[in-house]
Simulated scan of single mutants.
Amino acid sequence: MSLMLDRTERRILEALQQEGRMSNVELAQAVGLSESPCLRRVRALEEQGVISGYSATIDQRRVGLQVTAFVQVQLEKHDDQKTQAFLEQVASERHIIECHAMSGAYDYLLKVVAQSMDHFSEIAMQGILRFPGVKGIESSFSLLTVKQAAPLPIGS
């Protein structure tokens, strides 16, 4: 469900996407509010689920995850029980960092990070291909990240 955000709320969200560690004082100054109303608005956005969390952006290569693969998954058939079991396996695999249900020729698109090609091969062949209901997979590898974790275009 989409909420109608006013100009100030959009400015708060834009500022927090740029710098999530910004203090309430800094945020209030950036959006032109006093501190108490600013904090109330941020808390309301959190309670409404518009702000779903805060996190740090980590350079995956610096922590040893050299490979990024996009894995297209086709399921055998759309049996609710097998689909649920598949999704549970996806949720439990730490190296699958995104999963999207898709329209088109395949059913799911997974973003997978791995330490090396050998590690990715193990994740794919010993893991994803053995997940319940999987008919087949096709993998593509990122050669260069051009844009990642861009702020959502919330502005007016």
Rank of each mutant, 00 (worst) to 15 (best):
V113G: 01
V25D: 08
A105T: 14
Q18S: 13
Q72C: 09
V71M: 06
I58K: 01
M102I: 04
V90T: 02
A91L: 02
M22S: 14
H78G: 12
A44W: 00
Y108S: 08
A91E: 06
A105G: 14
T68E: 10
M117I: 10
Q18G: 11
S116V: 08
M125Y: 12
L75P: 07
E88L: 04
L109S: 15
T57S: 09
G20L: 07
A101W: 02
V67K: 06
I97Y: 07
D59F: 01
E122M: 12
R21G: 15
F131P: 05
E93L: 06
Q17F: 02
D79I: 11
Y108R: 08
I58T: 03
Y54M: 02
L45I: 00
V67A: 05
G53Y: 04
S52Q: 14
V134F: 04
L75R: 07
Q81N: 12
A56F: 06
G136Y: 06
A105F: 14
E19M: 07
V73I: 11
K111H: 10
S23I: 02
L33D: 05
L16G: 01
D118V: 11
A91S: 08
Q17T: 02
D80P: 09
A101I: 07
E76Y: 10
Y108K: 10
A85I: 01
A56L: 12
K111M: 14
C99A: 15
V112A: 10
R43Q: 15
T83M: 11
S116I: 09
G127D: 13
L45T: 00
S55E: 06
E26V: 00
I97S: 06
S103N: 12
R41D: 00
V67T: 07
I128K: 11
Q84W: 01
V71W: 05
I123Q: 05
P132H: 09
G64L: 02
I96V: 12
L75V: 14
E76S: 11
V31D: 06
Q89W: 01
Q126E: 15
I58Y: 10
Y106H: 15
V112P: 07
E98I: 00
A101Y: 04
G133P: 08
V50Q: 03
A28L: 06
R40C: 00
E26N: 08
G133I: 05
V63F: 04
D59Y: 02
R130L: 12
F131S: 02
P132W: 06
T83Q: 11
G127E: 12
E47K: 12
